[in-house]
């Protein structure tokens, strides 16, 4: 009785200590999110006044957005840019992580390499964008200079005038900024795998590649899923690099991402708040659906694998009995 009373006495501190978080979240996050939803159904345009008039057809902005070719392009670009930087990024990060954690390989100075590979991640993305804009400068830029000296190209390439090279540049920068970070997460993941599994593989005479494919990769699955989802949510909001690298949109809107589209609608002169709000709500919903299905897809795969293994074990048991 007494104990319960003392517990109750202290419970209020739990509420009290969480209160600043809760109030700040309500005021600076939840309210703006709800407000964005409301604006997306309104006719709010022009100078920021905050007066909200609902449209007679509340979904007009959404319909406008779905019919907007530029917006559809921007969504497509965002996904394409994300995929084309994520796949090489996760592959390279996993391979490097496997090398750095391989005891037989015993890579020297791995700390030095890790430090250098991670470095671009800490530098301001805005600076990186301008930096690469200058590096890929044409007709005279350091990279054109370098490639011509090595004989890769005969004449200077105008990287940002061609949709493909412009996109490739954005994807490359994202890849370059993030593979080191993903690699470090992978290394931590591999170090977290039960060493007994590797010992068992070694006793069974597994080669390095077999161990990697049969032990390391399956065990890394949760970490890969974590990286996939966080990278996806980050990638869908890609803004700094495409915004500053190629004058906001690139040739034929090739590098226009959804976040840059939202920015252009709201802050690009016309102040189409309602349409920017509708675009960001659509982006939010797309994000939620895809991130959710990534989770379910992987969970499902796991469940199927478990079921298969169970069935196999049951069959083996039955045969053994027979």
């Amino acid at each position: 009785m007494k104990e319960k009373k003392s517990k109750n006495k202290y419970a209020k501190y739990g509420y009290l200590f969480s209160l600043p978080f809760m109030i700040t979240f309500l005021v600076f996050s939840l309210y703006p999110i709800i407000y964005t939803f409301m604006i997306s159904f309104s006719d709010l345009q022009g100078v920021a006044t905050g007066d909200i008039n609902m449209l007679s057809n509340p979904f007009q902005n959404y319909m406008d957005m779905f019919n907007n070719q530029t917006f559809r392009t921007s969504l497509q670009n965002t996904v394409v840019l994300w995929i084309s930087n994520f796949i090489p990024q996760i592959v390279l990060a996993t391979v490097l992580a496997a090398w750095f954690t391989n005891k037989q390989l015993n890579v020297k100075n791995s700390g030095f390499f890790k430090t250098l590979f991670y470095m671009p991640n800490i530098i301001t993305a805005a600076s990186i964008a301008i930096l690469f804009g200058a590096l890929f400068g044409a007709p005279t830029g350091p990279f054109n200079d370098l490639f011509m000296r090595f004989g890769f190209i005969d004449s200077p390439v105008h990287w940002f005038r061609n949709p493909t090279t412009a996109r490739a540049t954005v994807a490359f920068i994202q890849f370059w900024m993030w593979y080191g970070s993903t690699m470090i997460i992978m290394i931590a993941g591999i170090n977290g795998i039960n060493p007994a599994l590797f010992e068992a593989a070694a006793i069974d005479g597994a080669t390095g590649i077999q161990t990697f494919l049969k032990v390391t990769l399956p065990q890394l699955k949760p970490i890969v899923l974590f990286t996939l989802v966080t990278s996806f949510i980050g990638g869908m909001q890609m803004f700094d690099i495409p915004m500053l690298l190629v004058d906001r949109s690139g040739p034929d809107n090739a590098t226009l991402t959804a976040a840059v589209f939202v920015f252009n609608q709201a802050f690009g002169g016309a102040r189409l708040w309602n349409r920017a709000a509708a675009a960001s709500v659509i982006l939010f919903v797309v994000c939620g659906i895809i991130a959710g299905s990534l989770f379910f897809f992987f969970r499902d795969q796991d469940a199927i694998a478990v079921k298969k293994a169970k069935k196999k074990a049951m069959n083996a048991l039955k045969e053994g009995n027979a």
Partner: peptide, 23 residues
């Protein structure tokens, strides 16, 4: 709730946030 907030992309709030701050 905190774990859910963690997964929400920040771009969703930016229009409402800006309007609110302006007011």
């Amino acid at each position: 709730l905190i774990m859910t907030i963690l997964m929400i992309p920040g771009t969703i709030a930016i229009i409402g946030f800006f309007q609110f701050m302006w007011q």
